[in-house]
Amino acid sequence: MARASFCLPLALAYLFLASVVPSYAQNEETDQPELLYDVRANFTLRCELPNDNSLAYVWTKNDTNVVDIWDLKDRYKLEHGGAEFIVPRSVEDDFGNYTCGLSGTEAVQRWAVRGRAFTKLPANTNVVEGQKLKLQCKVVGKPYPRVVWTFSNASEGENASDVRALLGERVTLRRSAQGVEDGELLLDAVLRSDAGLYSCAAPVGAAGAANVATTTLRVKDMYAALWPFLGICAEVFVLCAIILVYEKRRTKPDLDDSDTDNHDQKKS
């Protein structure tokens, strides 16, 4: 009976903790909204904490006072008595977790500042059949997301599908030198059927549709460079044959005239 009376409060305590923890996580996520900014554009954080006593505003990035961050030195400005934090002409490394607080108080307002991801690919890519294909999806906007590759065979009018689903084990996706997950696409021994549209995209976020970059892959015949050479050789051969025939025809009358002169001299 004593054990039962001990277990009952313990069970109630577990139920209480289970009900509190999800609520705490949800509140913490709500208190830190995500702000997406475009690289090389301005972004502004507005502190909305009540400040009836005109206390000094304290701004931090990744738990460090912005005054002590070398990358932000002379690049940010404070407006409206310090309640607005403005970064003109932002850069990629401006992403991070920002907070606003009031000096001498524990009140804090948080933001998760992230750069909007833009992907880049060359407009056209050419490769010779049988050679290795290497495509790098460049991304502007940190933190770099894991990109998604799709392929569409334009000649057959297929809809874009995941490259792994269409090309199978022949395709390899790996981390690019820039640091983008799956940012590099490798394809060994390219086939003529691999020609088409290759796209890399940043994942869709709450701010709108994903940014997609596309390149048109053209696969050249492995003998494409040989045909012009053979054509040049054929032209040279025909030209030489024409010159040879012309020289023979021009030399024969000269020989005939020489024989006639010799015969007349013998008669005389």
Rank of each mutant, 00 (worst) to 15 (best):
M1K: 03
A2G: 03
S5Y: 09
S5G: 02
F6N: 04
L8H: 02
L8S: 01
F16N: 02
S23K: 06
Y24S: 09
E28P: 01
E34F: 03
L36K: 00
R40S: 05
R46A: 11
C47G: 07
V58E: 09
K61R: 15
N62G: 07
D63A: 11
R75H: 08
K77F: 10
H80I: 05
I86V: 15
I86C: 03
S103Q: 15
W111C: 07
R114P: 01
A123W: 03
N126Y: 08
V128C: 06
L135M: 03
K142Y: 12
V147S: 10
V148F: 05
S155Y: 04
E156M: 12
G157E: 12
G157H: 12
G157I: 09
A160W: 14
G168E: 12
G168P: 05
E169L: 06
V171G: 10
L173Q: 07
S176N: 09
A177Y: 14
G179T: 12
V180F: 01
L185A: 07
L186D: 14
L191S: 01
R192I: 01
S193N: 07
A195L: 05
A195Q: 14
A195D: 04
Y198L: 02
A201Q: 02
A206N: 03
G208S: 01
Y223V: 10
L230M: 08
I232E: 12
A234L: 11
A241M: 12
Y246F: 15
K252Q: 05
P253N: 04
D256P: 00
D261A: 06
D261P: 00
N262F: 08
H263A: 02
